[in-house]
Design a protein around this nucleic acid. Structure first.
Length: 308
DNA sequence: TATCCAAGGTAAGTT
DNA sequence: AACTTACCTTGGATA
């Protein structure tokens, strides 16, 4: 086992681990105390969070089990980690510590709800999930509560993923495409995926057989990337936008989910253009363009956690 | 205790 | 292109 620390004074702008991981962007981490997504806004403070990271091109060539916690403040605190290999690189990648958050915040629109959301969760960042697990977890998200989406991913990992030991505990990696493609629809329904089971099965098969891989969409412009991702079964515009934003660095993507649609109806009705693509463009412009997805994530978490 | 409802939507069919 | 409808499951609200 290796351990290390990341000094947040060396990171551009603030960082907050808890709001970053528990704001409904990622379903691939667990809290060590088992309360991840159990209660909205349950502040345990300085908790360990853990995950297993698959090999990532240009970042790490091996699979790494890691746990991490934050001590101290969002500007001058410390990230403390333990892992099966050096983890500073993968944590910087997954938690977007390479973003210059202050500069991004400076470009965000001068709107009351945005300002309050940013003040409520200082240091919250977007995540950069691995593409395949991100794709599958958001296929599972259709018409589902956040805590249950997380439960599905836990069961998928426990059932089909490799076991990895770290510091006397067993972690379960998210299943690779070939592992998930070997699952039957019936087995997936037994994990209570419901009607999403055939979507997951068929999409895993598409990736396992090399028909397409979600990471290919990272090389495309944003809107073509969204269109590309909808070729996967169970992926419409909304899920495609989530993968664009939470995995593929298309930070202008604004997923039009039920929460953001209600924000549009209540506060920006002129942005409702009917069709997804046009409404998406309108709210993206209203949210400042280049980093509109950051704005969306602040507003989403702020409203969902009871603000206003 | 029983019943109802909605949850980070998508696919397939109809007009 | 816009509009309907079916779809699994279950925690939480309501009666």
């Amino acid at each position: 086992m290796e351990r290390g620390t990341i000094d947040l004074a060396d990171v551009s702008g603030p960082f907050d681990l808890q709001s970053t991981l528990e704001s409904g962007q990622t379903y691939l981490w667990d809290r060590a105390d088992g309360t991840m997504y159990d209660r909205l806004g349950a502040h345990g403070g300085e908790q360990w969070y853990r995950t297993v990271v698959p090999p990532i091109d240009g970042v790490s060539e091996e699979r790494i089990a890691v746990r991490v916690r934050q001590t101290g403040g969002v500007d001058d605190g410390t990230l403390e980690w333990e892992a099966t290999a050096g983890a500073t690189g993968v944590l910087t990648h997954l938690l977007r510590l390479d973003d210059d958050l202050d500069s991004m915040l400076a470009t965000m629109p001068d709107l009351p709800v945005v300002e309050r959301a940013v003040e409520a969760y200082p240091g919250m960042r977007l995540v950069r999930d691995p593409p395949f697990p991100c794709l599958i977890s958001f296929i599972c998200s259709a018409q589902m509560r956040v805590s249950r989406i997380h439960g599905m991913q836990r069961r998928l990992a426990a059932t089909y993923g490799d076991a990895v030991d770290l510091a006397g505990e067993t972690y379960h990696a998210f299943p690779r495409p070939d592992q998930l493609a070997a699952a039957s629809e019936e087995e997936l329904r037994d994990l209570s995926l419901g009607y999403r089971a055939p979507y997951v099965e068929r999409t895993a098969l598409m990736v396992a057989e090399g028909e397409a891989h979600p990471r290919e969409a990272a090389a495309l412009e944003y809107e073509p990337a969204r269109e590309f991702l909808t070729r996967f079964v169970g992926v419409g515009d909304k899920v495609a936008d989530c993968v664009c934003l939470f995995s593929l660095d298309h930070l202008e993507a604004v997923p039009l989910d039920t929460w953001i649609r209600s924000v549009i109806a209540d506060r920006f009705p002129e942005c409702d253009r009917g069709a997804y693509a046009e409404t998406s463009r309108a709210i993206r412009d209203r949210f400042g363009g280049e980093y509109a997805g950051y704005v969306q994530t602040y507003v989403f978490h702020y409203l969902r956690s009871g603000g206003e």
